[in-house]
């Protein structure tokens, strides 16, 4: 019963993390770039939004500025990688570290309370919040579906899939990487901006381990939707569904009144398990795969013979 009562609140939170997961989907899945900036850029989004809201700036403006601030974080990581030749993981770690200081300077203190401020979403008003968040998620997925269907979006997808080929086809892979990381971190910061409102406060520590939760959502989602469709929009919805699954499990753990100190350990184990699923699937299905391959080859050879 406690669990059921807690569900709406968890779903609201899951939807916000779903937007964050979509951001990670862009860097991790589409660009194939393990971007660790997000632990920092999420707080940048939350901190920027919270500071503006605390100073009675209109909510819409605050969210927009947070989005842009996140994009700048992505830009830094992207430039460290493309212009200075630093490997992806290191670029992300450097930006993340630097952002700790930047975020503290933005916020001025470690925690900003948003009590009594004009908020778009709030845990206290879960019903409306969920509706607004679903609309948010739908708009984000819609825009991304369009964007990655364009020439430019296609160039970004090609960069992540086969960089050498993309360059040979005249794609400036540095530009596409910058674009993808900018959009990705913009979305992560947007999630941060919504999360601080939902929770009623922004905290300098709220981004710790964010990448693990986001990746968990992406990976759980891809395991779930891989059987349904390879459509791009479905993949994005998968990230959100993954986030919801994650928070349903998470909430269960809280309701069982386990030691909350163990939550991060549990998150890590959960992600490790879901990351391992595709690997073990392949191992156990090996004999099946060989057969499928043979059939495929026969077909293709047949096609060539006929021609």
């Amino acid at each position: 019963m406690v669990y059921l009562n807690a569900l709406p609140g968890a779903i609201g939170q899951a939807l916000i993390w779903g937007i964050m997961a979509i951001g990670l989907f862009i860097s991790y899945k589409i660009l194939d770039f393990a971007d660790l900036t997000v632990d920092g850029s999420m707080v940048t989004g939350a901190g920027t939004c919270a500071v503006l809201l605390a100073n009675d700036v209109p909510t819409g403006v605050a969210i927009l500025v947070a989005f842009v601030a996140g994009m700048l974080c992505g830009l830094v990581t992207a430039l460290l990688h493309t212009k200075m030749g630093i490997p992806p993981i290191m670029s992300g770690i450097l930006t993340q570290l630097a952002l700790w200081s930047v975020n503290l300077k933005i916020m001025g203190k470690a925690t900003i309370s948003l009590v009594g401020k004009q908020l778009l979403v709030a845990r206290a008003d879960v019903g409306t919040s969920i509706i607004i968040l679903v609309a948010f998620v739908a708009v984000v997925i819609g825009i991304l579906y369009w964007f990655f269907g364009t020439k430019l979006g296609c160039a970004i997808r090609a960069t992540g899939c086969n960089e050498e080929m993309a360059r040979a086809q005249g794609v400036n892979t540095n530009t596409t990487k910058v674009l993808a990381l900018v959009i990705s971190n913009g979305l992560v910061a947007l999630a941060g901006a919504l999360l601080c409102q939902y929770n009623g406060s922004a905290d300098i520590n709220m981004g710790r381990g964010a990448i693990v939760i986001g990746l968990a959502a992406v990976i759980i989602g891809s395991v779930i939707v891989s059987k349904i469709s390879s459509n791009f929009a479905v993949q994005l919805i998968g990230a959100v569904v993954g986030s919801i699954v994650y928070y349903l499990v998470y909430q269960l753990v809280i309701c069982l009144e386990w030691d909350t100190d163990l939550l991060k350990l549990l998150s890590a184990i959960l992600v490790a398990v879901f990351l391992a699923v595709p690997h073990f699937k392949q191992k156990f299905n090996k004999s099946k795969f060989v057969l499928a391959d043979l059939n495929c080859d026969n077909q293709s050879n047949g096609g060539e013979n006929n021609a």
Partner: peptide, 13 residues
């Protein structure tokens, strides 16, 4: 993608 080689990648479908 190949048909776009040598041209700019805009926001057309």
């Amino acid at each position: 993608l190949a048909s776009q080689r040598g041209k700019s990648h805009g926001l057309r479908w």
